[in-house]
Design a protein around this nucleic acid. Sequence first.
DNA 1: CCGCCGTGTCGCAGTCGTGTCGCAGTCCCG
DNA 2: CGGGACTGCGACACGACTGCGACACGGCGG
Lengths: 223, 223
Amino acid sequence: MATILLIEDDPGVRRGLQLALSRHGHEVRTAESGEDGLRELGAAACDLVVLDLMLPGISGFEVCRRIRAAGEVPVVMLTARGDDFDVVTGLEAGADDYVVKPAQPTVLDARIRAVLRRSAPSDGVRVHGGLRIDTEALTVTLHGAPVALTPTELRLLLTLSRAPGRVFSRRQLLEEVWEHDYLGDSRLVDNCVQRLRAKIEERQAAPEYVQTVRGFGYRFGPL
Amino acid sequence: MATILLIEDDPGVRRGLQLALSRHGHEVRTAESGEDGLRELGAAACDLVVLDLMLPGISGFEVCRRIRAAGEVPVVMLTARGDDFDVVTGLEAGADDYVVKPAQPTVLDARIRAVLRRSAPSDGVRVHGGLRIDTEALTVTLHGAPVALTPTELRLLLTLSRAPGRVFSRRQLLEEVWEHDYLGDSRLVDNCVQRLRAKIEERQAAPEYVQTVRGFGYRFGPL
DNA sequence: CCGCCGTGTCGCAGTCGTGTCGCAGTCCCG
DNA sequence: CGGGACTGCGACACGACTGCGACACGGCGG
């Protein structure tokens, strides 16, 4: 499961690949052009870019160079024909792998996983939108910028993000994060959530990562 | 948490992983070879298979193909080296994920949970017609559109849907949903049912999900 | 010894959920 | 056919729950 940005101008191919990759368990965002893609990439980090070579406006090669110049996001190229010129130039532009169209979804997925595996050997990294949680280094970044969390806030975030979507009751959180036997109902959890939100949520009125489920508790991630 | 079948020929690795996965809350059964594993799988179902590639007798790939051909049990592969050939072939054989040996128990557990989460959304999710109830995320969708339920309405729906077809008396519902000792017969339940219906029923004249059994109480689901 | 940071507690305010009431419509039964 | 019981349904006011700021305590390092 990874977040993938698909840059492809042909609407048919774009939707087909988006659907196929979604079925393989990836989160897929799309862009129609190189400019659009670079903008999208700046807005929110992703784990990998699938990049078509034939694009209106900036060429795929140029987009690839800029992506690699900007960061360490791996790129899988999509070429119409496997002629040598494309491949060599593509790999020299910084692509990590390439797949020849028409692409078998299974093959593309296999390549993607292979690239992710060798270019991101760091396991235990959870990425949700612009939030990146490294469970080994115990670091959290928001849109690439490091976020300073206190130990308790970090434990809370780790616990919640371990099961995205699942609702944790205050009771459960007290046991897992604080490990006390919790005497007397307290609003400690609310408080810590509030402090955590102040650091990782951009619009606190509509929290993106830590959501409250009234009457039950809190939940990490998508609605 | 989940029942896992571990197919691994090396006795040391097998016991180590079995112990580690048990500690993470899984039920672990083991098999020493591909044939053994397939037999085991036929004898009793499990939620996921952890499959070593290097096996005596049938190869891991072949075992994987047969498992996927037989049913929908997800497979996590265990490979000695992450070379591309293994990965691509493995994923094409139908593996859902793979972990490179020597495997960190925590990493393996994380992968297992991720695979289980995406390949078995049927866990804790109840679907009846257009209504989908996720008992972990505590979300309800109607024809794909999220429905905002209040805590009491949600508890009511969860209680009723736990036993579709069964009739719950108002008394029972008061005890299970409200947990008070219920003094004085009240029409609280009727009210809450009404509010719930307003949100999930399309034709309230002929309720599809929450039906009233005159003189007795309410029932969830088909006649 | 002093000051800072993290943590737990308290109180206030706004919002939303909830329980009660009353009326009207429906079904059952005499 | 008529009366009574049962249920659907809207309205309303109280109360619970949560967000949020402020403060005090304690540990750790300068």
